[in-house]
């Protein structure tokens, strides 16, 4: 923002909400577009997740645990007890419980990107981009992958596919199709279309709300951080400027602290919903 003319508030926010992409998406759904920033951060944090968990798993012993091991064990116990309470199938839990753990830790880390100063990584990226000989005004970067709808929907669609897999696996293809047409209203030929429509709506609603909930929370959180950053950006040696800077410090601190709760809660909610949906896939109607 240190260019010869500062951006307006609108420009600043739009700049921050633009992905680093290979192309502008031409429609609401455009699978030829890839957001490199979201992918980069989610893959890096995915590797960090795996590395942390693997580090704990490698040293896991039944002896007295260290703090880090105890923390990971606490997490594993929490996820395991939740999975046991929701998915009543020991064979499925071998996949479902690790999946829930991955979801929780990974989404927590993805969300935690929100706690970094909102301009820090974009600023560094601008410098790198400029050093590489490009126009720094086009150095777009969004650091919170879960504030990208594609990322959260990717996760929820994965959960949906796993749900479908378990539906077929547990009930058999015939059993599942039978259920699609007979639940929830009952087994009567006149009710078949309504049952099927209901089931389809249920699957779509579950998946969309699953992904949208996480996205909405994180997107809103990011937006508020941007608005708070605008206050500090208006800093000057005047009463208003100093007041706004102080407002930035106070509001930023309060929102960051509150956000610690939100990112943990959203990661937990996403994990719990994934478990609940998978548990439903195991229920016979």
């Amino acid at each position: 923002m240190a260019a010869e003319h500062g951006p307006t508030a609108g420009e600043y926010i739009i700049h921050h909400l633009t992905h680093l992409q290979n192309a502008k998406p031409k429609a609401v759904v455009d699978f030829s577009v890839f957001s490199f920033d979201s992918l980069f951060f989610s893959i890096v944090l995915g590797i960090v997740t795996c590395f942390l968990l693997w580090k704990a798993a490698r040293k896991a012993s039944s002896g007295v645990p260290g703090r880090f091991q105890a923390a990971v064990e606490l997490l594993v116990e929490m996820v395991d007890s939740q999975a046991k309470g929701i998915v009543h199938n020991a064979e499925s839990r071998k996949f479902v419980a690790p999946m829930a753990l991955t979801i929780f830790v990974w989404i927590f880390l993805l969300n935690a990107m929100d706690l970094l100063p909102v301009d820090l990584l974009p600023f560094l990226w601008e410098k790198i981009y400029a050093a590489a000989g490009h126009d720094p005004h086009h150095a777009y970067l969004r650091v919170v992958p879960t504030a990208d709808l594609s990322i959260t929907m990717g996760l929820s669609v994965s959960v949906l596919l796993i749900c479908l897999y378990y539906n077929v696996k547990i009930k058999g293809l015939g059993g599942w199709i039978h259920e699609l047409f007979t639940a929830p209203f009952g087994n009567h030929w006149a009710l078949y279309p309504f049952n099927f429509a209901m089931q389809m709506i249920e699957f779509i609603a579950k998946t969309v709300s699953h992904g949208m909930r996480l996205f909405g929370n994180m997107y809103a959180g990011e937006l508020i951080f941007l608005l708070i950053a605008l206050m500090g950006g208006a800093w000057s040696l005047s009463a208003t400027g100093i007041g706004l800077a102080i407002g930035h410090i106070i509001a930023g601190a309060v929102w960051s602290i509150f956000h610690i709760l939100i990112i943990t809660l959203q990661a937990f909610v996403f994990m719990m919903l994934a478990l609940v949906y998978l548990g439903q896939a195991h229920d016979h109607h």
Partner: peptide
């Protein structure tokens, strides 16, 4: 704000992590 190919890649990454 749109669904992009990121979704497909994210799904693959997710399954690898799991």
């Amino acid at each position: 704000m749109s669904i992009t190919g990121t979704l497909i890649v994210q799904m693959i990454v997710f399954l690898i992590l799991v």
